[in-house]
Design a protein around this nucleic acid. Structure first.
Length: 888
RNA sequence: GGAGAUAUAGCUCAGCCGGGAUGAGCGUUCGCCUCACACGCGAGAGGUCGUGGGUUCGAGCCCCACUGUCUCCACCA
């Protein structure tokens, strides 16, 4: 039996209760089930340091919609959740926490630090997970994984060893990005280029053995200490003489040669470039070509080292200041020019990155990239929207080797050992104790850990048990869709794809659904520094998770950014309330009515009409969702529920709900009411099901209240098109009625008739079939058109001449409002209508008189246009006849 | 320096295969507390679809150029 429902929807008291119920019932669980087809999404693992933000909310809402939908469609739907250890973010956080407690990381040592880190993760690592639950996420939490758990760590080690054995992982001294604050190396993807205002310092390098100078321009004068040459373009006539000569390097006692290299752009700056192989990627290459010495002048913390002579110990920027000053004193500083240039910064701490030569571990990318590129070309992998494959391909085609070692403790330690006795390098799946070469037992493990993305790259299969041949791996892999923001295509998507091809031979998923950023109301990125971030949890508290989900999906196309606003939240909440109240209405009226399935012959035209509508809606929505047009699908559901179902159908059906005097036991009335109630309930259930992936809580609450024997909408079947619900012949009848009602309302409004004032309505049509339709729908006019009495007739007999008229394509309606009618106003209104119709007719005629249109356009298009013309001609005739009558 | 996205109603955005902008929400105007809902109901107003060309019987949609905005990539010292 229907329960008492409150007048406004109150999400807070409902959501937690339902989520707990779902958990208890294990509805989120997915298991290997050969009888069903699998559908799998791996959740992008949030950082354990994370707090739920709008980006997560959007990302997880989209995934939850897909998963709930597929689950209802009968797939064994696995949403594989988990969290990421986020090596650098977490290490920084823990280091700071320790610092606050007065503990120094270095003193604590590796072991002690890791102990603290694990403690931290146990305490805070699940916070983000509980926040995701507030959103309604139906992930299989029993399968929750962590990038540093035993299985994932095993996968990491296996992959490392395999790539090493294949020669794809190597150790080398190369120029890498170094963050002096975090004191670790970084991959290219972690470096952000920021435009900064800087200077060009023009400095003179005296030529040895003769008068004169070479003028160079630099943005980083302190790197002068590491210069080992000055380069000019070989074709530069100005400097031809100088090539091979030596220069005195200012502020040092070193002399460096002038070399010729095509890398130098004659047109840029002075045409002379100082070469610092140890601190500039280009110079590094130049240095290699000319066998130049590489002088590292920086310590890991960004201070000048012993190679910097008297500047040793100074911070790099301090040294810059001092050196510029001294150059000025010596007359070697020509000028300082303002210059904006791009500076590489660390994406986590925004410290300016210093290029340095360091011995690091790298992954060779050329071979690995190939199948990942191929995947797009063969269509094994596709992006939604499609254009992101360009971004993806461009990155892959220009990819550099991936620096994977990090000078951090929190993470997967590199499984490499060296033997101090013989220098042998051992990479092994098991921790070695003895050197296989010399038998030495003093093996030392590499201190570094792996880039955090190395483990996330394996996420789609490591979470399923790989490298073991688990039933899950067999069944759920490859996964289906990956949902993520365009901002991490480089970091993550690409690396998952090539890792998966390399390890499993398959793409990890067939589709990548890309979404944009959630911006603030003004279109700005939400950020801590701007303080414009909106906490999704706060929004959920105020409006409910359903309303938040609705806001995030409404009117948003894949890949596009969206703006969040409380105005949108209001609209979403209003919709939830609308659904709530429609359901309340239906339940109230169902009270005591038998809603067992009725037979087709009991259904009224409007019942058939709305059933047909919801039937088609299901097909359309499914189609849109198949194409990942979730925003469009939602829009259709929204429009159907609000406009068609609530504003039309429910209103149409009201006269059948309330018995008039003496009708209480009338068999025809009771049967009609029963049919209406069954239809209301049926259409509501279908609508709720379609809406459920978007608004899981409210739909569940209503669904269960509506039918006590159903335990959850979550496990109910997704609506499919039903043959027996396609009453295509009734649509035009109902549309005819709607059109007539609208016309009556319009006239009444135009004439300023108070809504409470009922008036008789005469409907005139020469067509018998049309009259029949209106006869059947008489009740609607009273309910929807404020009619006191309705007469359907073939001619105008008995209708007062001064009645106001409303014209539709099929019929004319007359409303006697003698005391209110203003002939001039009525004429003006009809003339306006006449003008509109003229325009319409001109448009149709324009097309239909065009021979090229007639000869080239498809036949159905022409027929359509002819039908329109006929309809407007008919309308025009009626309007003009009425005008003539009034002007008489 | 490359690449991409975007330009539609006052605002925020949809617009599938080229075929009347039939768009939606918010805002706005007028009228309504009509026994599900004022978080509501009814009726309106409001758009040269950035500019200029082209293809087509027909272009918001396809092609070219331009302009504005945004984003990503990139080792010009």
């Amino acid at each position: 039996m229907a329960k008492e429902l409150s007048k406004t929807y109150n999400p807070t008291e409902i959501e937690d209760r339902l989520y707990q119920k779902w958990l208890n019932k294990k509805y989120f669980a997915a298991n290997v089930n050969k009888a069903k087809k699998p559908f799998t999404i791996v959740m992008p693992p949030p950082n354990i340091t994370g707090q739920l933000h709008m980006g997560h909310a959007l990302d997880n809402t989209l995934q939850d919609i897909l998963i709930r939908w597929k689950r209802m469609q009968g797939f064994e739907a696995l949403w594989q959740p988990g969290t990421d250890h986020a090596s650098i973010a977490t290490e920084v956080k823990i280091t700071n926490m320790l610092k606050d407690k007065g503990i120094d990381k270095a003193e604590l040592g590796r072991e002690g630090f890791l102990k603290e880190a694990w403690k931290w993760r146990a305490e805070y690592g699940s916070r983000i997970v509980s926040q995701l639950k507030k959103l309604g996420s139906s992930a299989d939490w029993d399968r929750e994984r962590f990038t540093m758990d035993e299985g994932c760590s095993k996968a990491v080690r296996e992959v490392f060893c395999r790539l090493y054995e294949k020669g794809y992982i190597y150790q080398g001294s190369r120029i890498i990005n170094w963050c002096p604050v975090c004191q670790t190396s970084l991959s290219d993807a972690e470096v952000e280029h920021e435009e900064q205002h800087g200077h060009f310092w023009h400095i003179l390098y005296p030529i040895v053995g003769q008068d004169g100078f070479v003028e160079i321009a630099t943005t980083r004068p302190e790197t002068l200490l590491g210069d080992t040459a000055v380069a000019v373009n070989p074709d530069d006539e100005r400097y031809k003489e100088l090539v091979g000569k030596m220069l005195k390097l200012p502020l040092t006692d070193r002399e460096i040669p002038v070399i010729a290299d095509a890398y130098v752009d004659k047109e840029f700056g002075t045409g002379c470039v100082k070469i610092t192989p140890a601190h500039d990627p280009n110079d590094f290459e130049v240095g290699k070509r000319h066998n130049l010495e590489e002088i590292n002048i920086l310590n890991d913390d960004g201070t000048i080292n012993e190679n910097g002579g008297k500047y040793c110990g100074m911070d790099r920027y301090e040294a810059r200041k001092v050196m510029v000053e001294e150059l000025k004193e010596q007359g070697l500083l020509v000028k300082v020019v303002d210059h904006t240039h791009n500076v590489g910064t660390h994406d986590r701490c925004h410290t300016t990155v210093e290029p340095m030569i360091k011995k690091q571990w790298f992954v060779r990318m050329d071979e690995l990239a190939k199948p990942a590129i191929e995947a797009i070309k063969t269509g094994e992998l596709k992006f939604v929207p499609e254009h992101f494959d360009k971004t993806y391909l461009h990155w892959l085609e220009t990819i550099h080797d991936w620096c994977i070692s990090r000078q951090l403790w929190w993470g997967h330690r590199i499984p490499a050992w060296t033997c101090p006795d013989c220098g042998e390098l051992i990479v092994s799946r098991e921790d070695p104790t003895v050197c296989p070469k010399c038998g030495g037992t003093r093996l030392v493990q590499d201190e570094d850990s792996l880039d955090t993305w190395f483990s996330s790259a394996l996420w789609p299969f490591s979470t399923l048990g790989w490298p073991e041949k688990t039933p899950e791996m067999e069944y759920f892999f490859p996964t289906d869709v990956l949902v993520t923001g365009y901002d991490i295509i480089f970091f993550w998507v690409i690396r998952m794809v090539f890792s998966s091809y390399e390890q499993t031979g398959k793409s990890p998923f067939h589709t990548v659904l890309i979404h944009g950023l959630v911006r603030d109301e003004l279109g700005r990125k939400m950020s801590k520094s701007l303080g414009n971030g909106i906490d999704p949890l706060e929004v959920i508290d105020r409006y409910g998770a359903d309303a938040l989900r609705l806001t995030l999906v409404t009117g948003n196309a894949p890949g596009n950014d969206m703006r969040f606003s409380y105005t949108k939240m209001d609209a979403s909440r209003n919709f939830a309330n609308k659904v709530w109240n429609a359901s309340r209405f239906i339940m109230m009226n169902m009270e005591g009515v038998d809603t067992a399935k009725v037979t087709t012959d009991m259904l009224a035209d409007e019942d058939k009409w709305i059933l047909t509508k919801v039937n088609h809606l299901a097909a359309e929505v499914t189609d849109n969702m198949d194409n990942y047009d979730l925003g469009i699908a939602l829009q259709k559901i929204y429009d159907f529920i609000w406009d068609e179902f609530c504003d039309w159908y429910i209103e149409m059906v009201k006269p059948r709900m309330y018995a008039r005097e003496g009708q209480e036991d009338d068999a025809a009335f009771l049967q009609s009411r029963r049919a209406a109630c069954w239809t209301l309930k049926t259409v509501l259930i279908q609508s709720l099901k379609l809406l459920h992936p978007y608004m899981p809580f409210i739909t569940e609450e209503i669904f269960c209240n509506l039918q006590d024997d159903e335990e959850s909408i979550m496990v109910s079947a997704w609506p499919v098109e039903k043959q027996e619900w396609s009453f295509d012949d009734v649509e035009h009848k109902v549309e005819m009625m709607k059109e007539a009602v609208r016309a009556i309302r319009q006239v009444r409004t135009d004439m300023n008739v108070a809504p409470g004032k009922k008036a008789a309505v005469f409907v005139v049509s020469e067509n018998e079939a049309v009259r029949k339709v209106f006869e059947d729908g008489k009740a609607f006019f009273a309910a929807l058109g404020s009619a006191s009495h309705v007469a359907i007739q073939a001619d105008k007999a008995g209708i007062p001449d001064d009645a106001v008229s409303a014209v539709t394509a099929n019929a004319s309606m007359y409303i006697p409002l003698a005391e209110l009618i203003d002939i001039d106003k009525e004429i003006a209104r009809l003339e306006k209508e006449e003008k509109r119709l003229k325009g319409e007719l001109a448009r149709s005629a324009g097309m239909l008189r065009n021979e090229k249109f007639l000869s080239k356009a498809p036949a159905d298009k022409i027929a359509e246009e002819k039908a329109k013309e006929a309809k407007y001609t008919q309308l025009m005739e009626q309007v003009q006849a009425r005008l003539a009558q009034l002007k008489k």
